[in-house]
Write a protein that binds this DNA or RNA. Structure first.
Lengths: 159, 159
DNA sequence: GAAAAGGTACTCGGATAAGACATGTCCGAGTCCCTAAGG
DNA sequence: CCTTAGGGACTCGGACATGTCTTATCCGAGTACCTTTTC
C-alpha cells in the first residue's frame, strides 16, 4: 500500500481541526509533517477529484474538507488515493487450464477468487465503519491537547 | 497485490488433488496454467521456504505439499508470497509534527495506525479461517469433475 | 477622495523525470537413474 | 547372473535483466489582492 495513504489520512484529520472554513495551502499542510510539498499536492488533487476536499486557487487559497467529517469514512480516503480496484485481482488463470472455457467469468465461479474477495470485503467494512469524525473524537478524548497544538502548528506555518 | 499469489493458491490447490505423495515438477505445474515455468519456480521456492511445500531435487523430483491441507490456511500461502509485513506501513510521520517526540512509538499510539491495523486484522482473520482443505471441499461439492480433470491434466503434461 | 485599471504574488493543476519493486529469464549445483563393464 | 562404477539427464536454487508502478519534481493557468493612476 502506498505511503500517500498515511499522508492523506493525517492531513484530512488535521483539516478537521481548522476551526473556520478557511482553506489551507498544500505547502502548509506538507510543512506540518515535513513532507514534499509538491507531492502532497498531488495526493490532495486526488482527494479533490474524489470530492473529499475542495480546492480554492489563488492567494488565500488552499484545501478544505468538502463535507462534514461524519460523512467521510476512512475507506473513502483510502479509495481516493489507492484506487477502487481490489488488491487481489483475479486474472482468471483457470481459462488457460486444460478444461477451462473462455466463455465463463471465473471471477464469479472461482472459489479462490471468492475467498479473497470476501476477505477484502471484511477489510473494507472495517474501514467504512470509521468516519473522520470518529477518529477525531477518539484522538480528542485520549489527547485533549492535540486540537490546540494542531491549530497553532498550522497557524505558525502560515506566517 | 502481486499476481504470484493467485498462481501459488491455484497451484497448491492442484497439489491437493495429486493422489500419491509423488512430487510434481514446477514445469508441469506451470504448464497446467500456461505460466512462465521459471517464474512459478521462484514462487514455489518461496512456498518451500515457508514450509508449505517441500522440494525434491533430481529426476522424479518436484514439489509436494509439506503437510496436511487442513493445516494450511489461505493466509499462510499469501504471507509466504507477499511477505508478513502489513500492507499499511505506519511511517510514524507524527514524529515530524511540531509537537512530535522521537521517543514515542507512534505505531502503538497513532489512532489512524490502529484503525488500519484493525482492518488488516479482519482481513487476515478471514483468510486464516479458510484452509486449503476447505477450499478443496467446496470446489469438489460444486464441480465434482474437477479432481479427475486436474489429475488427468497434470498426468498428460508429465509425459 | 473614490473608483477602476493594471501589475504582482500566490495557489492549484497537470505534464514531466527518477527510483523502487514486481515480473520475467537464465545458468549452475545437486541428485537420481540408467547403462555397461567386470567379477 | 549379480555387483558396481561411470555417465547422462533431470530438477531445484539462486543470480541476473526487464517492465511497470510509485515516488518525486517542475513549470504553466488562473485568481485575488495591492498599487497606481485617473476622474
Amino acid at each position: 500500500m502506498g505511503e500517500g495513504v498515511e499522508w492523506a489520512l493525517h492531513t484530512c484529520l488535521n483539516l478537521t481541526w481548522v476551526e473556520d472554513g478557511r482553506p489551507v495551502p498544500a505547502a502548509v499542510l506538507a510543512g506540518y509533517f515535513k513532507l514534499p510539498p509538491a507531492y502532497l499536492n498531488k495526493q490532495l488533487q486526488a482527494l479533490a477529484r474524489a470530492g473529499i476536499v475542495s480546492s480554492v486557487p489563488g492567494p488565500r487559497g488552499g484545501f478544505q474538507l468538502a463535507r462534514d467529517p461524519r460523512k467521510i469514512t476512512v475507506l473513502d480516503v483510502v479509495v481516493a488515493i489507492e484506487g477502487a480496484e481490489d488488491a487481489f485481482q483475479c486474472a482468471q488463470i483457470l481459462r488457460d487450464a486444460p478444461d477451462g472455457e473462455p466463455g465463463i467469468d471465473y471471477r464469479e465461479t472461482c472459489v479462490i477468487s471468492q475467498v479473497m474477495r470476501k476477505a477484502e470485503l471484511a477489510w473494507r467494512a472495517e474501514l467504512a465503519a470509521q468516519t473522520l469524525a470518529d477518529v477525531k473524537a477518539t484522538v480528542e478524548s485520549r489527547f485533549p491537547a492535540v486540537p490546540g497544538q494542531t491549530r497553532q502548528g498550522l497557524h505558525s506555518l502560515r506566517a
